[in-house]
């Protein structure tokens, strides 16, 4: 069979074929194989972290990743941002009738690989098929569960004046890659999503014993939005050095053409770390030696005031105020 039909979501024979022929093949693990209405997880000791996210990206395959990989990484990364060790995820598909079986298999395989890479088990799942036109190809929801070591206190409210701000690599890669594809740009520029797993690098950072205050992945709304949120949660100012923020040449070119600022563009495999000043160099070193952080850089400092805002020291010597975007960026200059 080449295409997904409504029968695949009906709970009948076709559904079973899908589950056993495709999902079990790629996700096999003891808990999933319990085969009951609910999966029973072993006993946890300690605090539990939970995160959920739905993935509705277009296009579903893009340079550097696909919707499957993204839906695992996204949720696992969110768990890791709290300092938790990710253990399990659940998976729910909403698929448009007529979707290619081959593409579904590619996505499922990609999910299986990503889960293996992240060291998480897929412990529950669901598939719905809806009439053609009700959704755009395929939507995926994942929920993740992780366990939080006792002494961990990481959160957006913990930044203090003097702390250093580190970014794990170049910004804007994912957003520009997706934009270029989605809009059918005929560009000579090569852009690739940074879609990647951050839990490994976070594990190593936390292992150094550094005083890590905040971990965030600057996804939708880009670095500017993430930092604005932190500045408000912690009631501090965040001061960036424009020249220190790593941006790929290709991304910069694309942004210049579109009149956009890479700092507002989405990332899918980047990490912002806010860490006590004395630990900054050590953390930077660990990040740089990890494949996900080879372009890591200290990009700024937490300051007392003015509070609740993000600033960029520009190369000509001014301090630009980096506002939280209010929807579409509309021209202000005459």
């Amino acid at each position: 069979m080449d295409y997904i039909t409504l029968a695949h979501g009906s709970g009948g024979k076709a559904s079973h074929q899908l589950i056993e022929g495709l999902f079990y093949k790629h996700f096999q693990n003891d808990i999933l194989l319990q085969g009951n209405d609910a999966s029973i997880l072993p006993k946890f000791s300690g605090r539990i972290a939970v995160s959920t996210d739905s993935f509705v990206i277009h296009p579903i395959f893009f340079p550097g990743g696909d919707i499957g990989k993204l839906s695992v990484y996204g949720t696992v990364n969110d768990l890791a941002m709290s300092g938790a060790k990710p253990l399990y995820i659940t998976l729910a598909f909403i698929i448009e009738e007529g979707f290619s079986m081959g593409d579904l298999e590619k996505i499922v395989a990609s999910i299986g690989e990503a889960a293996k890479e992240a060291g998480v088990k897929i412990v529950a799942g669901d598939t719905k098929v809806v009439e053609s036109g009700s959704v755009d190809q395929i939507y995926i929801n994942t929920t993740g569960i992780g366990i939080l070591p006792e002494d961990i206190d990481i959160g957006g409210q913990n930044a203090k004046a003097g702390d250093k701000i580190i970014i794990s690599g170049t910004i804007g890669d994912h957003g520009t890659a997706i934009m270029a594809l989605r809009k059918g740009f005929e560009f000579s520029i090569d852009l690739e999503s940074d879609c990647g797993l951050l839990s490994g690098m976070i594990h190593e950072i936390l292992h150094t014993g550094a005083k890590v205050k905040v971990l965030r992945d600057p996804t939708r709304g880009g670095l500017a939005t993430t930092l604005n949120e932190i500045s408000k949660q912690s009631n501090v100012g965040l001061l960036l050095e424009e020249a220190a923020v790593p941006v790929k040449h290709e991304v910069r070119s694309m942004c210049e053409i579109l009149g956009l600022d890479p700092i507002y563009i989405a990332n899918e495999g980047k990490l912002v770390v806010i860490v006590a000043e004395e630990d900054a160099e050590a953390v930077l070193g660990v990040m740089k030696s990890h494949p996900m952080g080879k372009d890591a850089a200290i990009i700024g400092t937490v300051v007392h005031s003015p509070q609740g805002q993000v600033y960029v020291k520009t190369e000509i010597g001014g301090t630009r105020i980096l506002q939280m975007p209010v929807g579409e960026l509309l021209p202000r200059i005459c």
Binding site: E256, I257, L258, G259, L260, L329, P331, R332, I333, C334
Partner: peptide, 10 residues
Amino acid sequence: RMPGGETAVK
């Protein structure tokens, strides 16, 4: 249309 928003002003 202002292609590139503020960039079209510059």
